[in-house]
């Protein structure tokens, strides 16, 4: 399952008003580590779809949200629950490390 894209137009509905926990992957085309970690996120999305929703936000196309959430490094992953950021993970990591960081939301 490929994580779906969200934009400034759909962010409120897809992320802030989502009943489930949502991980937002802040990424960009020109970011090598973002592209490297993308398939790992897709795997986690598939394996934990009942617990955690995973979406991607392109920071080039949605600079307002990148600024609002004070993104200064990508890839950055922010987990939202009931509209609030509850967890931030920065940087591409191997799957087991990322799963460990997200343990509270996927297990």
């Amino acid at each position: 399952m490929t994580a779906r894209a969200v934009t400034e137009a759909t962010f409120e509905q897809e992320v802030l008003k989502n009943d489930k926990a949502v991980l937002v992957d802040f990424w960009a085309e020109w970011c090598g580590p973002c592209r490297a970690v993308s398939p790992i996120l897709d795997q986690i999305a598939t394996e934990h779809s009942e617990k955690l929703d995973i979406v991607k936000l392109n920071v080039d196309e949605n600079p307002g949200l990148a600024m609002k959430y004070q993104i200064t490094a990508i890839p950055a992953f922010k987990v939202f629950q009931a509209g609030e950021v509850v967890k931030t993970v920065i940087g591409a990591k191997p799957k087991p490390a990322l799963e460990a960081d997200l343990a509270a939301y996927i297990s």
Partner: peptide, 9 residues
């Protein structure tokens, strides 16, 4: 990583 993060500055 300047190429990753420079954009935000």
């Amino acid at each position: 990583c300047a190429t990753c993060d420079g954009f935000f500055f």
